[in-house]
């Protein structure tokens, strides 16, 4: 390692036992953006699940809000090394959405408005582990953080929690998404530091 700047700290809080290895605590909520922010009106929003056989179901905003809503408190971990503890969200569990889906697929490719994709195994979406959320800290989710709605899979690195989510494509084989095709890990567990594939 080169030169150490002893007075330089960076904007970090480290050595936090609640954090996975290599992570530091963020007090604010950094906006990550790999591209332009899509602005989707709720009237135009829809979420769909397409199974491996091609059948699909979709929900518009009203139908989505009519589903049972859950409040979630979770720690989130970004692969760029910040973590945010105890974040509050409101949304619909993937289990609820999957109640009406017949599938034997093991994988999903998550699609977003704006063209972003990420792959998540179904086992990581079901069983109370993932939600489609539309509120953060009691307020509507702003578009820079993924509104109208984003996926929330807090036990995986946050790039899996796709912003501006529009649907899931269920597949038998795993299809790598936007970061996964750039060498990021297919699974992305922060506690195992599954950053790179």
């Amino acid at each position: 390692m080169g030169i150490i700047s002893s007075g330089f700290q960076g904007r970090r809080n480290r050595d936090d036992p609640g954090l996975p290895p290599g992570q530091h605590r963020a007090e604010d909520f950094p906006v990550l953006s790999a591209g332009p922010t899509p602005r989707i009106a709720r009237a135009d929003w829809e979420f769909r699940i397409v199974t491996e056989t091609g059948t699909s179901r979709h929900w518009d905003w009203a139908a989505f809000l009519a589903l049972p809503q859950e409040d979630i408190t979770a720690d989130i971990h970004c692969v760029t090394s910040w973590s945010k503890l105890g974040t509050h969200w409101r949304g619909v569990a993937l289990d609820t959405l999957f109640d009406q889906i017949e599938t034997t697929a093991r994988f999903s490719l998550v699609h977003s408005y704006g063209g972003y994709t990420t792959n998540v195994p179904l086992a990581d979406l079901l069983g109370g582990k993932a939600w489609i959320v539309h509120q953060f800290n009691g307020a509507d989710l702003p578009s820079e953080h993924g509104g109208p709605a984003r996926l929330l899979v807090p036990h995986l690195y946050f790039w899996k929690s796709a912003k501006w989510v529009r649907g899931l494509e269920l597949t038998g084989e795993e299809i790598p998404g936007f970061w996964e095709t750039n060498g990021y890990h297919a699974h992305g567990d922060p506690w195992r530091e599954e950053r790179y594939g």
Binding site: A41, Y113, G115, T117, P176, G177
Partner: peptide, 12 residues
């Protein structure tokens, strides 16, 4: 496919 490319057609 994971589009290497841009926003899908017909988006806002």
């Amino acid at each position: 496919r994971p589009a290497p490319g841009g926003p899908g057609a017909g988006e806002r």
